[in-house]
Simulated assay, not measured.
Amino acid sequence: MRQRIVAFVLTAAVAVLYGCAAEPVTVSTSGMTALGRETIHVGIAYDSAGRGDNSFNDMAAAGLDRAKKELLIDATEVTAQAETDEGRSASLRELVKAGSNPVIAVGFLYAGAVGTVSKENPDTLFAIIDDASVTADNVVSLLFAEQEGSYLVGVAAAMASRSDHIGFVGGVQVPLIEKFEAGYAAGARSVDSDIRIDTRYLTRPPDFSGFGSPEKGKAAAADLLGSGADVIYSAAGGSGSGSFEAVRAKPGAWAIGVDSDQYLTAPAAIQPRILTSMLKRVDNAVFQEIQAYIKGDRTGGVKQYDLKVDGVGYATSNAAVKKYEPRLERARFAILSGAVKVPTS
Rank of each mutant, 00 (worst) to 15 (best):
Q3E: 14
I5E: 14
I5D: 14
A12V: 15
V16R: 13
L17M: 15
E23L: 12
M32H: 14
T33K: 00
L35Q: 15
T39E: 02
T39G: 13
I40T: 07
A45K: 05
Y46P: 10
A49G: 02
G50W: 02
R51W: 04
R51A: 14
S55M: 10
D58L: 05
M59Y: 11
L64C: 11
K69A: 15
A80L: 03
Q81G: 11
G87C: 06
S91K: 06
R93D: 07
L95Q: 05
G99A: 11
I104M: 05
F108R: 02
V114S: 05
V117R: 01
P122L: 13
L125S: 06
A127V: 05
A132L: 00
N138L: 14
S141C: 08
L142V: 04
E146D: 14
E146P: 06
E148P: 15
S150T: 09
G154D: 11
A157C: 03
A157G: 08
A158F: 04
G171Y: 00
Q173L: 10
L176E: 08
K179Q: 13
E181C: 05
E181P: 04
G183K: 02
S190D: 06
D192Y: 03
D192K: 12
D198N: 13
R200W: 02
T203Q: 09
P206W: 05
D207C: 11
F208H: 08
G210L: 05
G212Y: 02
P214H: 06
A219S: 15
D223K: 03
L225D: 01
G226C: 12
G228A: 06
A229V: 07
G237T: 02
S239T: 03
A246P: 04
I256N: 00
I256G: 00
Y263H: 14
L264N: 09
T265N: 11
I274E: 10
S277V: 07
V282S: 05
Q291K: 15
R298T: 08
V302A: 07
Q304C: 02
L307Q: 12
K308C: 04
V309T: 13
T316P: 08
K323Y: 02
E325S: 10
P326A: 14
E329F: 08
A331H: 02
R332T: 14
